[in-house]
């Protein structure tokens, strides 16, 4: 399992960096979806099946849809980032920075003897459904209110015309 976790982690990291460095918006959206999917798989491997499902469906699905529709609303068929943004050039040192940062963190952890437990704690308590519906009612209400706020936002941004 550990190998699979590492592979997913690698995918996640690599595609995330590509998404950030890409000049094309559609490329970025697709690589972000892949990142999302990789993290979903990672969650599944860690034992979070419901969260993985949500991640894959909502994040790599819904967010990509939102993103691409935003792109198409803003620039029609022009999917390439205009040259003046030059994100790939502006972030070209990002991989090196990340490698250095990761290495530094590794060294720090190794030097200070920092290590998280190996995991596999015995899962206790309620199931996901019971937890969500019987101990996190406040969060559920919060989700609801967030969704109606989002709806109001959509009304403001996409339905109402400019009057002033």
């Amino acid at each position: 399992m550990i190998v699979a976790v590492y592979i997913c982690l690698g995918f996640m990291l690599a595609f995330g960096v590509i998404a950030i460095m890409s000049d094309g918006l559609i490329t970025a959206a697709i690589t972000l979806a892949v990142t999302s999917a990789a993290s979903g798989v990672l969650m599944y491997l860690l034992g979070a099946k419901w969260a993985a499902a949500f991640e894959i469906s909502v994040c790599s699905g819904l967010v990509t849809v939102i993103f691409i529709s935003a792109v198409s609303l803003s620039s029609g068929d022009k999917t390439k980032l205009p040259a003046e943004y030059q994100d790939s050039r502006r972030t070209k040192r990002l991989p090196a920075v990340l490698i250095v940062a990761g290495a530094a963190l590794m060294c720090a952890a190794a030097l200070t003897g920092f290590s998280l437990p190996a995991g596999d704690a015995a899962q206790t308590g309620l199931t996901f459904g019971e937890t969500l519906w019987e101990t996190r009612q406040a969060d559920v209400w919060g989700q609801m209110i967030a969704l109606i706020t989002g709806t109001a936002a959509i009304v403001v941004f996409f339905k109402e015309s400019e009057n002033r």
Binding site: G142, Q143, A146, A153
Partner: peptide, 26 residues
Amino acid sequence: ATDLFTLYVFLEITGTASFVLIAMYK
């Protein structure tokens, strides 16, 4: 709220409503 996570959720709601209120006139 009696839970940091709930606090966070409602914080996000506060924030989202504020953004839209500011941008309301576009």
